[in-house]
Write a protein that binds this DNA or RNA. Structure first.
Lengths: 293, 293
DNA sequence: CGCGTCTATCTGAATTCAAGATAGGAATTG
DNA sequence: CAATTCCTATCTTGAATTCAGATAGACGCG
């Protein structure tokens, strides 16, 4: 059994047919047939049921398929390991949920590209669940998502562990003074982590029925809160100067909703390139310096 | 880059020489040379420094080596996955530390061989640290060790989580009545988990300086304790009948030493054969039924 | 310098692999 | 029911690769 055999096997399984597989493999059908038959005879099992309309995996073939995949990625990782001489270089594809991007991404990327100028970094903004899927499918090398994450194939590092505060206009002395009829919940995204937690926190304070106001950037949100249009929820660490300038007022929160953990997740068996490793280091350093609380 | 190339590479790296590698690979040196040179030209890097006394890995080669290993085990796992049709069969090599073996192994193995008669099980008895190394080196498919275990390449399942009690002769009403000059600490193995914890517990009760008595089997230990020769430490679950018969007296323990967790650890990337899976199931069932507390 | 040990290269034979041609089986269709 | 179509299996031939052996060259050692 060889890696090339498994590539052929994988193509046949994926296309459920030797002709189609041959097309993908840039060869002819007879060679595919021969290779599959040799593989079957070597393993002593049939891997496909032959039908008039193509091939279908037998149970043994179905058991083999994920391992064929694993061998392929192991080979890919081997190649990358040889190429990677320790200096961060080449492409780095990561993801982030929107709020982390708005709060920290600029700072993290800025400090990273200074430390690793030869890396071409690309950041995809999606919701946490979409990001997790993309990481699992190896479309991203890692992503910032809201914690906690429990998955056997993923490993996550806590990058940010931040205390949350409710932000209101400067003249709102207490959350109880919020007028449910006028004030709005101002968030980056409907249904986001911050939206859900803000709603839950306000409910705990007996404030219900606030309308939603969805705004695209942090600056606009803070501006609207400062103007008394509503309330928002943010990590304490990022609103220091605003509060000192008296533009907004921060209200501490108690209970299970009072903190947010941001993890950087990646596949456990994914290749840790120098670029990725440098990015993680850089992010951790940034987080240590940027979040005072 | 192919799996066969990596096998050659691995052999050369291991033997630090092409002649020796050729010997292992059942071929001639010229073929090994050709293959390595082709691999190097494909990767665009030299993998070995040529010396007059053999070959030495370059940094790039050193980076490749562990991945070559990974590709090989991925292929092995693939082969095993095809062979394994779901009915537990074939060899199963596991390990256990002594105390778990003495307390539970008979029961677990008995219930397992009934459920999976076609499996040839072999159990190696070693200390926890030796077992961990053997599992990491893939010499064992898994092992019972004392928890907790933290290692990125290992995954552990808690099989037993037992409350510990100190066992004395039936006429010792209180641990304080133990005579440090006469009573001994009776344990399965010097320096074992149970030995250390027993010592720590006795110290907490102000009892120090007990001599050690190391005995090979649980029955003998219980017999000696019953005869008033000393004290031992055991999970509460296994001494029920003995206590009811009045042969020994159990003394509850408080504090951090009062419980013992036994994990079954295995390599995260190891192949989970049907035999191993069945053994884990069987062990969990056994543990659920055998440990009442 | 001769010897032993190592890698590099060359060469012809053996093996394997690629591509095309062909056959056969099973649905589909007119 | 025959023609058609889409599929896999097999055979053949030439190309490519791999193998084993022979030989050359580099280096250290006594």
């Amino acid at each position: 059994m060889d890696a090339r055999d498994l590539k052929v096997f994988e193509a046949v399984a994926r296309h459920a047919g030797m002709n189609r597989a041959a097309l993908e493999l840039n060869t002819v059908q007879s060679n595919v047939t021969t290779r599959i038959r040799l593989l079957e005879s070597e393993l002593g099992t049939t891997l496909f049921e032959r039908h008039t309309k193509g091939m279908k995996l037998t149970p043994a073939g179905a058991r083999l398929l994920p391992h064929a995949f694993e061998v392929r990625t192991a080979l890919e990782n081997a190649r990358r390991a040889v190429m990677d001489d320790g200096t961060p270089r080449g492409p780095l594809n990561i993801g982030s949920r929107k709020s982390t991007a708005a709060l920290h991404l600029t700072g993290m990327v800025a400090s990273f590209i200074e430390a690793a100028p030869q890396v071409d970094i690309s950041v995809r903004i999606e919701t946490s669940s979409v990001l997790l899927d993309m990481v699992l499918e190896r479309k991203l090398e890692g992503a910032f998502v809201a914690g906690p994450v429990e998955h056997p194939d993923l490993v996550g590092d806590v990058i940010f562990d931040e205390e949350l505060v409710v932000l209101t206009g400067p003249d709102v002395a207490d959350l109880a003074h919020i007028d449910p009829a006028r004030a709005k919940m101002i968030v980056l995204g409907k249904g986001s982590f911050y939206h859900q937690h803000l709603e839950s926190i306000l409910t705990q304070h007996g404030i219900k029925g606030l309308r939603l106001l969805e705004l695209g950037t942090l600056e606009v949100i803070v501006g609207c809160v400062s103007a008394g249009l509503g309330v928002t929820l943010l990590p304490k660490g990022v609103i220091g100067p605003l509060q000192r300038e008296g533009k907004v007022r921060a209200h501490n929160v108690a209970g299970p909703d009072c903190r947010v953990q941001t993890l950087f997740v990646r596949r456990r068996d994914g290749f840790m390139s120098s670029a990725l490793s440098a990015f993680l280091d850089s992010s951790r350093r940034y987080a240590a310096s940027a979040t005072i609380n």
